[in-house]
Design a protein around this nucleic acid. Structure first.
Lengths: 206, 206
DNA sequence: GCAGAATCAAACTGAACAGTACAGTTTGAA
DNA sequence: TTCAAACTGTACTGTTCAGTTTGATTCTGC
């Protein structure tokens, strides 16, 4: 019975889509099921055929968003060059800029706010979100640094500390600063700022 | 008319106190005015004499908590010794441990969740919260590093990058990791972990 | 074209809850 | 004693909203 007809899955996606917009804009408490049904172009009745409750719907919405993010992030880091210090520097700056750009988008921030607020009630989503950052970002940086270390470009005694230091130093522009910034779109740090932090970090790795 | 009688201020504090407990435990939406009145040991009627609405009450509660936190943090950093590398290292580890301990408490995390969730609706509180970290913590670290630099203990070209790197590397245990952790109390990083990050950071400052 | 499934719109139910009204009690000063 | 202000507890109002019911309508495969 876990098998869904193609039909069903299409409708489900349609509902999820509409709900996504409303949840991100209004949060869990602020989103009414009437508004969700309307945004999805579906009757409330149908909505409740596909989802047993508003909470189940939200879990599906947030879970989908996060796994899509994680999927998008994956792969293609293996190709990034790290075989000399200038290469590593450029790669780190590039990666950092991409990531910061992605997570300073108002969508992602709204998503994060909703998740943080509801994480006591829905722990699994909180865990999934932390993994987007922990697993997603930290892991990617670790992987790059390991390759660079193995290539003899840098010296790292404590890989966890190194990864924490670099990702933390960069993420701090978004968490805490960006997440509560409400006047205008959030400013990801400009490239120069990113470069300065990467450079400083690299000085610690000889 | 801005003058309050002592009587009034005592009652106001009593209400604020009860409300604090309920807001931190339940969040804004989850806290009912009945529960707040009960927790404060005050009739709902009286509550509405002192506060025009639930929202005004929450702003007062969060604002009070944050300014108390900021007040507690202030001062006494001027005495911390930074005149040699071992001294600086010990001082940084000490400061970091204190700060991490403070902000990984379940009260502070609950407070942060509420603020983050409501920051789109109540921007001033969001700003105040960011200042607790930005102004409070980052400023203190900056001040220490400046003294150490002036004493010739470290070399720092870019003070902002240095502060970001260090505070970010440490805060990352709480944000994002701690804020959505719900199984058991949040684990501030142990002393050894803090030391490793501080040590790595110090390698970047010659 | 038709049976049966899926969907729709709209009204309804029941509960939660912010905020108010009210009738009565305490307190403390004159 | 008296009076006024502050307070209390309970009950009420009005609204919002998740979830259900109803009964009609539109698809879809046969």
């Amino acid at each position: 019975m876990t098998q869904e007809s193609a039909r069903s899955e299409a409708k489900r996606a349609q509902i999820r889509h509409g709900a996504t917009r409303v949840f991100l804009a209004e949060g869990f408490a602020g989103a009414t099921t009437d508004a969700i049904a309307k945004a999805a172009g579906v009757s409330k009745q149908t909505l409740y055929v596909y989802y047993r409750s508003k909470e189940k719907l939200m879990i599906d919405v947030l879970g989908s968003l996060l796994s899509r993010l994680n999927r998008d992030h994956a792969a293609l880091d293996g190709d990034r060059p790290v075989d000399s210090l200038p290469q590593l520097r450029a790669t780190l700056v590039e990666l950092a800029s991409e990531v910061l750009e992605a997570i300073s988008g108002s969508d992602y921030l709204a998503l994060s706010r909703v998740i943080i607020a509801d994480s006591p009630r829905v722990p699994e989503i909180g865990r999934l979100w932390a993994q987007t950052i922990t697993g997603g970002i930290r892991l990617r940086v670790t992987e790059l640094l390991e390759r660079a270390r193995d290539a003899g470009v840098i010296v790292v005694d404590d890989m966890e500390a190194a990864t924490r230091l670099l990702t933390g130093g960069l993420l701090t522009y978004i968490l805490p600063d960006g997440i509560v910034a409400t006047d205008g779109p959030v400013t990801a740090p400009d490239r120069e700022r990113v470069e300065r932090i990467v450079d400083l970090f690299l000085r610690a790795t000889t």
